[in-house]
């Protein structure tokens, strides 16, 4: 049995939180540059130029890309032959978040109670943690810090099976349209189809983690992703909502088996600053 020290989990979370706050993932930056070249109006070009200049400044001067440095969601893919020593796994994760947000002066954006007190916890904890057991002795951490401008524009619908493909497409495009300028377009759109009410939402967020240049392994779902991306861009929401050509940088779908009576569909909208990264311990 492989032993993993809890301190290594803290260290990995600490390091990942700060990296994603300052540096765009290379696949997203490349896609933004392509989008810039596809814009034709002064306003949309100006908006894209600001985003690209912002990316450069954030990286070189270590100022967060966006002031909303997000609510952290962590996926732990833990081998069943791993034994974590010297501490609790979840506490190790929260310590990494707390230390990184405090030391790197990222924004504390979490309130302790959603409805009554809404008091800031001061260190951006707690993060949301999902744990997946896998075979073997690997320990992989995926981490995302998502801003709420786009999270607030996400939606879920329990479609009827009879609504089928057209129902899924309409709901995804309607959600993108409703998000409009609020979600800091150009957006990345995560879609979860199938499972249960809650699992479709989980899948829609996980779908955001796949690199933009990596196609969906299933050709049918890949074709749907391409089609939705093209149709989303026909909506002409555009950078900053100024009706330009680049509305969606990508649409990414994850699907799961579901009930005979159901077709859950969740859409997790993410702004252009889709901050995520994975590390292997």
């Amino acid at each position: 049995m492989r032993e993993v020290d809890a301190a290594r989990i803290t260290e990995a979370v600490y390091d990942t939180c700060q990296k994603i706050a300052f540096d765009y993932a290379p696949d997203i930056l490349a896609r933004l540059k392509r989008g810039r070249d596809e814009e034709t109006t002064e306003r949309s070009i100006a908006a894209m130029d600001q985003l690209l200049e912002n990316a450069e400044l954030a990286s070189t001067e270590r100022i967060p890309i966006c002031q909303d440095t997000g609510l952290v969601t962590v996926w732990l893919h833990v081998g069943q032959d791993v034994h974590v020593i010297n501490g609790s796994v979840y506490e190790a994760v929260q310590q990494g978040v707390s230390k990184s947000y405090t030391e790197h002066r990222l924004r504390a954006s979490v309130v302790s109670d959603p409805l009554f007190e809404r008091v800031n916890t001061r260190d951006n904890t707690p993060a949301v943690i999902y744990t997946e057991l896998v075979s073997g002795d690997s320990f992989r951490i995926e981490l995302t810090a998502k801003g709420f401008g786009s999270e607030n524009m996400s939606r879920l619908k329990m479609l009827k099976p009879a609504e089928g493909l057209a129902g899924v497409k309409d709901f995804v495009l309607e959600t993108i349209k409703l998000a409009g300028p609020n979600a800091c377009p150009p957006m990345i759109v995560g879609v979860g189809v199938g499972g249960t009410f809650d699992y479709s939402a989980y899948l829609s967020k996980r779908a955001l983690l796949r690199p933009l240049d990596e196609p969906n392994p299933d050709p049918r779902w890949n074709a749907l992703e391409q089609e939705l991306e093209a149709e989303a861009n026909q909506l002409h929401i555009g950078p900053m909502g100024f009706h330009g050509n680049t509305t969606a940088l990508a649409v990414k779908i994850l699907s799961a088996p579901t009930h005979i009576a159901g077709l859950p569909c969740a859409v997790n909208i993410c702004c252009h600053a889709c901050r995520h990264k994975e590390v292997e311990l």
Binding site: A47, Q50, L51, E53, N54, L57, A58, E61, I63, P64, I65, C66, Q67, G147, G149, P181, C184, M240, C271, H272, A273
Partner: peptide, 13 residues
């Protein structure tokens, strides 16, 4: 007025 969402490093300048 609207400013560019997600350009916080640039706007801070």
């Amino acid at each position: 007025f609207v400013a560019c969402g997600g350009a916080g490093a640039l706007l801070a300048h």
